[in-house]
Every structure is written in C-alpha cells, then in structure tokens.
Design a protein around this nucleic acid. Structure first.
Length: 741
DNA sequence: GAGCACTGC
C-alpha cells in the first residue's frame, strides 16, 4: 500500500500542489508546473501525452529511461494512436464501448494504457483488467506493456494466470486469462476492484469470454462507475453492439500487407492431395517465401509431411538445377516444444551459389490460426476444413468432427500470409462455395459443448434463472437441461435448481463436476490423497507416450504400472513411480512417460490440494496393505462417475447404463478381464463408440450412491437393469433379515 | 487394436 500512497502524492503534486516540490531540491527536475491538471475520466489525449513525455513516470515516480523514449517513438506510429482522442471521448461518454481492430493496430497494448491515463485507478486503489484467451498472450503482452510504461513487470503492470500471479499491491494494469477473471468473479460477483475491464479477442468467442460478456453486461447495470471495452478482430461488430444495447463502435485500421486470394475453379475431391500438389506448385513456380498449410490433425499432418518430402526428393533428383530444397515442418499442439521450435528456423539456403532458393513449409493445425504466429509466411494453403468439437445432448457425448471452416476463419488464415510482406492465399474450394456454403462465423464454443461446468459456475456467480440468462448466443435448451440434470444427480443442485452446500464447494474446484464430486466424496472412502492424484492425472493430457516406431517398447513400459482392473489405478501407479524416482525427466523418457505432462499434473495436484485444505476436506489414505485399499478408490470414483457406467451384455458388448449405447473398451485400456460393470472417464466417438479410461465397479455401489439415477422405475429395460434388480432384491432381503433378528 | 482441433480455471 505504501507505493500506492506515493502515486497519489505524485499525482496531486503534479496536478495541484506546488509548495512541496518547490521546497524539495530533489524534485526540482520534475518541472511539475508545466503538467496539466488531470481529473479521472476527463483526460485529453494531449494531456496524457504530456505526462508520457514528462521527466518522471506518473506511476512510480522514477525518471523515464532512454529505452522508454525509444519505444514511445514506435508507439506513436501505431494506427490506434491516431484515434486516442476519439477513443477517450467515446469512453468518457459511454459505459460500454466496442472496439474493432485488425492485426497490427496496437489495440491490445495501447488501449489499456489509454484507459489507464484516463481512469487513473491508482487514485482509488482500483485496477484495470485486460483479458486474453491464452496464458502466453497474457504474459507476453504484460511484459511488453510494462516496458512501454517503464515499470517493472509484476509491479504497476502485471499478469495473472493459473499457477502464477505476477501482480502486487501496486498493480494498476493487469493482463489475465479470461478464465482467471471469471474465477475472481465467483468470489466478487461485482468485480469491485476494477474500474475498467477490457475483454480482448472477443471474436474468438471462447466459453469464458461468452460467460464474462453475459456477466459483465449485468455488472454494468449495477455499477455505473465501471467501464467495459469489448475488443474484437473481425467486422462482426454489429452483433457485439446490439448485444450491448447499441454500444458505440470504434474501428481501428490494421497494419498488414495485402493478400491475393485464389480459388480453385472446380471443387477438389481430395483436399489432402490438392494441398500437396499446391505446395509443389508454389515451390517450383513462385517467388521465394515460406508456405503455411492448414490441415486438420496430427495424423493427417504427419502423412502430408511424408508425402511432400517424398515428392520433393523426386523433383530435386529429376531437376537439381531448377528445384531448391524444401524444409517440411509439422505443427500441432501435442508436438514436443523443441519440435515446435522448428517452425521458427530459417528456410534452407540454395544448394549452390546462384541455384534455386530453398523454402520452408509449415503443415499445421488451427494452432497457427490464432495461437502461434510464424513470421516470413508469404503463401497460405487453405483446404477449408478443421476439426471442431460438437456436443450431442441426446447421448451426452462430445466428439471431434472434421467440418468446413467459417468465412471469418478463412479470412484469418489468409491474413497469415500478409504479416511481413504482400502474400498469396490459395483456397482449395471454389469462390462460389466460399460465398454460399461457408457460414459467416464459427459457432461459438458455448453452442458446441457440454455445459456441466459452465452451469455450475453460473450458479456460483449468482445467476438464478439460467434459462433466461442473457447469453450472446443461447445454448440449446436440451444442452442446458442435460447440465442441470447432471448437477442435480451429483447433488450440486437441489430440485429447485438451487446450489447445495456441496455444489458451492464443487464450483470452487477447476474441474469437471464429476471429478469435483469424486474428489469431495473421497475422504468418506478414506482415499482423498489417491483420488487427488487420479483427478490431477485426468486433468492433463495423456502422460503415456507411444511413438509409432516403438509401440511395443512403449506398451511394455506402461505394463509396469498396470493395475488389472482399473485404468485409473494405472494412472495412480504411474504418478507414484514418477514421484518415487524424484520426478526425474530421464527416468520418464526411459519409461515412455511425458515428463512435462507429469510436471503439470503435479502442479494441478498442488493447486487442488490447497483448495481442499481451504475447504477443510481432509487428506487421508487407507493403509496400502488393507484389502480395501483399491476398492475404496474405485468406490470414490463411482461417487462422481455413476452416470458413466457400462454393463457387459451376454453378446460381449458393453451397453451404457440408461442411454443404452453400444460401446467398446478403447484399445488403450489395460484391463485384464472384461468386468461386468465398468465406469468410464470418457466416451470417445470415432470410427466406433469407445469408452476410455475404465475401472471395474461393483453394482451395489451404484445403487447406494445414487438411488435416484438407478431408480428401476425409470430405467430402460436391458440386461443391466435385470442384474441391478436382482442385486437390489438381495440387498432388501438382507436388510429385512437384519431387522428380523 | 486406435487416436489426440485448440484453449482455460
């Protein structure tokens, strides 16, 4: 707090009082009299610029550095700079502002600073938050803006992301992930510490951004002092404006190079083949410049890379004087980081002096559309597809489907060719298809996924009437019903759709409701330490590595951790061994385990452990030699996953309980037998219906955990039902016997 | 006997 006080001193010194400075020789250099008076929300661009050009920093009282002045020259050249006055006028006269700025406009770095000089949150001990969908962006932009304001990162400017809070009591501008701001809202629904909130990249319409928009729309009504700026890259501004009650719009031009778009005259039958052909054509016919190809997934990308390399080798040996080298680089999220780094390497040089130039081609998933920017790309090949999540509320299954992209997405892809100089984009579909068949925008995530967690969060945020909640795009009623039903069966919501005591605690955990429930229930099965580990392992990507050319060795390595009737316990064993071996990366490598993934599981575990301690959920274990050790763990899992259970039918197939979907154990399952009853972590819909990460359960646990879900009166007829009825009868007669005696 | 678009708390 000491620092904030000195800010105020500095401020008031600058604006009104002279006497203190005149009598203080150390402050003589401030030359304060020349600085204009600044009143919050009345700042003009000229006044702010005078402060930015003053000898000392308004925010920390230190003299500005040369580096600061050098950066300032560049900042003044950003397109958004020209509109500072316009921005200030709009934000001073309106509570909500929509800002559209294309790539290179400088909106992410400058707008928060413009607002900072106008709001001056330091005077009232408040902050400005700017949200980003991704952690790396929050971190790197915060670093940049700290430099631009000539302050130390983590002091006046900071960032806040999961696992890392780089802010202090003097922080006035904070970049954070949108999920982080949402977490804050759960404990402070009015977000009262913020004088201004900027939602960046709103056009991406992530789940969190959509919830924040709905929430902030309400918060603005209750807090007239709050300023909200919604920033987006696309020209879909009209939708944002009308959602926010016709908020004014500021359009900032971008700074990119023109990109020529080419379409195919006829539809392509095989986009993969067409993409490869186009790479070869560009390489042999076009000017130097790197190529970016968008494909849908790992397998397709690796396949394409092999084929391109093969074809290029042919061409080079046929015409060595006319065809240069081509470096083919795959890119997808599960690629290890050192492999991902290859996209930044230079294109190969000509093989001999004066020979044809070398070129780099990056074959990538959608990761290169938003998350990663590769400089030097001049050619983009866009086949027009990506994998998208879809949710089927009827069978309660999320799956990934290769689908046509939207126009907005096609535009974004094309833009990747014009970052450093004019480029070309080859769309492997017809212009007519682009105009008539592609939808304008990609469906927002909130329409495409299971909403269990979202509904729990909204309830925790104090939204009582979910059905009438003002979503920008309202999810299907059936999807909401499914979420409410799940939360009701889990005991998080009562029959009046109110949050229960357990529901309140569940909402605190950054977990799917099923996992949160299993974790909270685990102390009553004396295995919370173990469930904590399993939940952490299930919250990170698959830790078992299985390279295509070493499948056998990898499977043998995994077999060491195997538990005969539970994949969940295999995860537990792997984690224990990892810790036993001192979290050693070498050991992980030798045992086909992903050290990075296990490290992040450990991080997650620590975070969840702290939350458990905060809520007084005891950390306990059953003695390892107790024969109930394994049973207790599976029993606790069942208390969260009793709705994800399958029964082995006499024909050898599994049928999911109640939904009666035919499913098979995923080939990655390591169960030694096919137990009659299993619970599963995940339903994977690919060529077949698979259930993945499976454990044996005892049917009497199911009846005991949720008599409501396993109410035989509301259970469809199947072999599983008859088996459950027999067990129920047995339990009933036992109870009777007991009473009789 | 198969995959795992991408994020995030």
């Amino acid at each position: 707090m000491g620092k904030r006080k000195s800010d105020e001193d500095n401020d008031s010194r600058a604006s009104k009082s002279k006497s203190a400075d005149e009598s203080n020789p150390y402050l003589a250099h401030l030359n304060v009299q020349k600085l204009p008076k600044m009143t919050p929300r009345k700042t003009t661009a000229e006044d702010a610029e005078k402060y930015e050009a003053a000898p000392t920093n308004l925010f920390n009282g230190r003299p500005f550095s040369q580096k600061y002045r050098d950066i300032m020259v560049k900042r003044r050249l950003l397109p958004v700079h020209k509109q500072r006055s316009e921005f200030l006028e709009l934000v001073q006269n309106n509570q909500i502002l929509i800002l559209v700025g294309e790539t290179g406009s400088g909106k992410t770095t400058q707008i928060p600073q413009f607002l900072l000089y106008d709001d001056m949150p330091q005077r009232s001990g408040m902050q400005i938050a700017c949200t980003q969908p991704r952690r790396v962006a929050a971190m790197s932009v915060a670093k940049r803006v700290a430099d631009e304001l000539d302050v130390v990162l983590g002091e006046e400017v900071g960032y806040s992301i999961r696992f890392e809070d780089c802010t202090s009591s003097r922080t006035v501008l904070k970049y954070c992930t949108d999920g982080m701001l949402l977490r804050e809202a759960m404990n402070d629904p009015l977000l009262s510490r913020y004088s201004g909130i900027i939602l960046d990249e709103a056009h991406e319409r992530t789940l969190q951004t959509d919830i924040l928009m709905g929430l902030l729309k309400e918060v603005c009504r209750k807090r007239s002092d709050l300023r909200l700026i919604v920033m987006s890259a696309t020209l879909d501004a009209g939708k944002f404006q009308s959602y926010f009650d016709d908020a004014p719009l500021l359009v900032v031009p971008g700074r990119t190079f023109p990109v020529d778009i080419f379409y195919t005259p006829e539809p392509e039958r095989d986009y993969l083949e067409a993409a490869i052909r186009t790479v070869l054509q560009i390489h042999t016919c076009e000017d130097p410049g790197d190529i970016l190809v968008f494909l849908t997934g790992e397998e397709e990308i690796e396949d394409a890379c092999r084929k391109i390399s093969g074809e290029i080798n042919h061409l080079i040996s046929a015409q060595p004087d006319h065809v240069g080298d081509l470096k083919v680089v795959p890119l997808y999220s599960t690629l290890p980081p050192q492999m991902q780094q290859k996209i930044f390497e230079d294109a190969p040089p000509p093989r001999k002096k004066g020979g044809p130039p070398g070129r780099k081609v990056v074959v990538s998933t959608n990761i290169a559309e938003t998350s990663l920017t590769i400089d030097g790309i001049v050619y983009v090949i866009d086949p027009g597809f990506s994998k998208q999540k879809v949710y089927n509320p009827r069978i309660r299954v999320e799956s990934l489907l290769v689908s046509p992209i939207s126009k907005a997405s096609a535009q974004q892809r094309a833009g990747r060719a014009g970052r450093t100089r004019p480029g070309k984009c080859f769309r492997l579909y017809t212009e007519k298809a682009f105009k008539n068949d592609l939808q304008e925008q990609t469906y927002p995530e909130i329409l495409r996924c299971n909403l269990g967690s979202v509904v729990l969060q909204l309830k925790k945020l104090g939204i009582d009437d979910l059905v009438h909640f003002d979503f920008m795009d309202a999810p299907a009623p059936e999807t909401l019903m499914r979420a409410l039903e799940l939360l009701n069966f889990l005991g998080a919501l009562n029959d009046d759709i109110e949050l229960t005591d357990i529901g309140v605690i569940m909402a605190e955990f950054p977990l799917d409701p099923q996992l949160a429930k299993a974790l909270i229930s685990s102390p009553s099965h004396t295995c919370s330490n173990e469930i904590l580990t399993i939940v952490a392992m299930l919250s990170v990507p698959n830790a078992f590595i299985r390279p295509n050319d070493q499948r056998k060795q990898a499977d043998e390595a995994k077999a060491q951790f195997n538990h005969p009737d539970s994949d969940h316990l295999t995860l537990l064993n792997a984690y224990h061994e990892y810790k036993e071996h001192g979290s050693d990366a070498q050991w992980c490598f030798a045992n086909y385990l992903n050290a990075r993934t296990l490290k992040s599981a450990d991080n997650v575990r620590e975070q969840l452990k702290r939350l458990m301690e905060r809520h007084n959920i005891p950390l306990v274990s059953t003695d390892f030699n107790d024969k109930q050790y394994w049973n207790n763990i599976r029993h606790a899992l069942a208390s969260g996953f009793f709705m994800q259970v399958a029964h082995l039918e006499r024909n050898g197939h599994y049928l999911t309980a109640k939904d009666n979907q035919v499913v098979q154990l995923h080939p990655s399952c390591n169960l030694e037998t096919k137990p009659e009853w299993v619970l599963y972590n995940e339903f994977v819909l690919t060529q077949k219906n698979y259930i993945r990460t499976v454990s044996e359960v005892k049917p009497d646990w199911l009846l005991e955990i949720s008599p409501d879900y396993y109410d035989m009166k509301r259970f469809p007829d199947c072999e599983g039902k008859r088996a459950l009825e027999r067990i129920a009868a047995k339990i009933a007669s036992k109870k009777k016997d007991k009473k009789g005696k």
